[in-house]
Design a protein around this nucleic acid. Sequence first.
RNA 1: GCCCUUGUAGCUCAGCUGGUAGAGCAAUUGAUUUGUAAUCAAUAGGUCCGCGGUUCGAAUCCGUGCGGGGGCACCA
Length: 638
Amino acid sequence: MLNITLPDGKKLTFEKKVSGIKIAEKISKSLAKDALVMEVDGILKDLSFEINNDCSVKILTSKDKDGLDTIRHDTAHILAMAVQELFPGTQVTIGPTIENGFYYDFSRKDPFTENDLNKIEKKMSEIVDRDEPTYREVWDRDKAISHFKKIGENYKSEIIKDIPKGEEVSIYFHGKWHDLCRGPHLTSTGKIGKYFKLTKVAGAYWRGDSNNEMLQRIYGTSWSTQKQLDDYLKRIEEAEKRDHRKLGKEMDLFHFREESPGAVFWHEKGWNLFQKLISYMRAKQDEAGYKEINTPEVLDRSLWEKSGHWEKFGANMYTSTTPDEKIFAIKPMNCPGCVQVFNQGLKSYRDLPLKMSEFGKVHRYEPSGALHGLLRVRAFTQDDAHIFCTEEQITEECLSVTNLILEIYKDLGFENVILKYSDRPDLRVGDDNVWDKSEKALLEAIKASKLEYTINKGEGAFYGPKIEFVLRDAIGRDWQCGTLQVDLNLPGRLGATFIDKDGSKKIPVMLHRALFGSLERFIGILIENYAGKLPFWISPLQTVVIPVSSDFDSYAKEVNKEIKKKGISSIVDLKNHNLNYKIREHSLSKIPILLICGKKEVDSNTVTIRRLDSNKLENMDLNLFLKNHSALNKANSK
RNA sequence: GCCCUUGUAGCUCAGCUGGUAGAGCAAUUGAUUUGUAAUCAAUAGGUCCGCGGUUCGAAUCCGUGCGGGGGCACCA
């Protein structure tokens, strides 16, 4: 007698051992039809797995995350199967599921082309139609290794060698084709359906290590209904429409060019946005007790040697040799310069915490393949600050930084923030007991903030552990922005001291923090988050005044003048185009407010407001408009 | 940096298997004076990313360099 407990607490009894399929059938016909895999005492199993003792069972369908994941995993297998049928001699490696889909890495001489993807998709459909039964076998480890070697699957035999001793080596068959796999899988190839699509080919290193050979990765997506697939493809399309590189061009904000890859040429409007963010930030930092400073962009090599950058960060640094053959580095970080400012004059414990902010432009030589619009550049402006404090002050200062960051993100429309904590990397400066202290202090601050956090082992900066602030945008994508680092190393290396209560010289702790991280990146994120439709107060061009015909040019000019007087950025469009044309043009360039002026407006000293993306027109007294909208600007940049 | 892919007018793109380039929009000029997402017409506009090669002849084929895109690796 077997007792199976279902998720709702109901119990089923069976005479002898029983498979998941049988259990599902006993629950309901429709469930048996939809069943994909099952959870036995919380562990995922094939439906064909035969249960031999009392346990709890949950039958999973495509509505469960693990159910859909299994569909994707099966699709990855079928992809590999199709590839090997079409291109004999191709070796398979790994094929996991990822968010929204899956990939499979292959080793093959000739590259896969876009056209090959179509062929492969067709072959995959065929395999689904063949509805080949799937079953699992457990093999002896040595047998498995020699088998895969014999059939030329060297990567697979490598993988088997690395499976921990205690684990079973399971082989899944789909008809005759088979693959080493942990499972679970659906009962046959027909079960996955045809709601998949191969999306792209890409290179990927074997085992993710750039010292290894490069494999060919095929990405795909897979769903349980046609609608889900269509919705997903549509989401991708929508995300592409928000691409800041495309919008940046359309909105005339910035451009890139060959002469300086990864460096931004800001146009008038983009620079205006940039400056608006800075003045907003200045106001916030001023309120929070920061003192703004500025330090040189080019500094002698000796300073970078002292700080440790020359050795630990040298691969990312631009250097410059002057005619007198001195070597300088273009700063990749602001910290050493800031410490030099701290070092001027004697500092007392009464000066701490001392918070110095700097909008510092830094240059980092990033690998060419890493560059990506504004989101990954070689020259960027950090909204940086360094807080010099005592060890006792670390937690409190970290907390106040965290609060400031959250407040600022909120003002700009991001409420969803998570933290990533990174501890000591392999490449680092300083003693381990110093690291112990720094890590402990930072972790304490995170805990005190009560925010959700994840831990990234070994990913801290070379001088100290860090927190990264990751925000989630309007369409669910995560972006790494702000950062907070505890540093017990650099101040000592660069000779920073303060006089403590007892009259002795002590080395201060330095906290590095950036709020947006990089102004450039943050602007890219803002554009994508708002799909270019920035909030009024940071819009670089806030209003365009449009006369209905040239008869009203002078009134329109007058309105424009009044608006500009109130600190609202505005232009008047007197071009020889009709109203429709102008509305279309300025709407496409994402101007938040268009002000239409015709006979009616002139007669009543009003403007008609047309807001971006709204057909609702609003006629308003000009003075009231000026009052309301200049207040909107002031509210955020005091 | 590595793999794949790509580079034609200010922008978006045509240009098949080699015969020195085209469209729409934008620009300029003229007409039109417009009430909520493209008024009409004319004109002008290009070392086809750079360099080298194959060829009688290269935007097109080959090599190479530099950019862009998608990934990997690296990262704010």
